[in-house]
Write a protein that binds this DNA or RNA. Sequence first.
DNA 1: TCACTGATACTCT
DNA 2: GAGTATCAGTGAA
Length: 207
Amino acid sequence: MRVTKEFYERDTRIVAEELLGKILVRKINGKVLKARIVETEAYIGPIDKASHAYGGKVTPRTKTLYGEPGLAYVYLIYGMYYCLNLITERIDYPAGVLIRAVEPLENIEEISLLRYKLPYDKLTKYQQKNITNGPGKLCMAMAITKNENSIQTLNSNELYVEEPLEKYKLETLKVFKCKRIGIDYAEEAKDFLWRYYIKGNIHISKI
DNA sequence: TCACTGATACTCT
DNA sequence: GAGTATCAGTGAA
């Protein structure tokens, strides 16, 4: 079951928290990749100096942030890496959730090839641990680029979020909150506790 | 395991 | 032209 529009039409912090444990689905080369979302961050433009759309700033890049809930917002960072966000709340309100880390569940072979060009059993322990534990890494591992920017994940069959199947449900889902990462420039906003992760999961980017 | 650093290209001023 | 919601490689412990 795919998550609904109503799921995204709520406070960004609630969406960020409830995305934990959900399944990110990506269809590529005729294969279906699935991964559990284990770490997220909320970005709420109007009140958040760390957001690209702080203070209602509109540029060609941030246009997607103002779009419908459920849209994918993909942007390039540091010239080399992509980051995936899901748009929340409502049209003309620039807010979204950054997916920071996932845990591969299905077609790990394909994920490994996309990420390292090597089969999974050829990876070092270090590579296996680092396969999807960061926003740039999971985009490499699931072939997400700026081509995927502005995809509506409520309609698309290429990229969307669904409820976990019974076998993928976590028995206990302990959520931890802390400060966000990599936004030291954001003054008071850098201290907001808008990063969420599943306690104890080894696939998060940083303790 | 940790701290440091260079790579890299796009976006906005 | 400056800055960036990051990562991998390096070298030291």
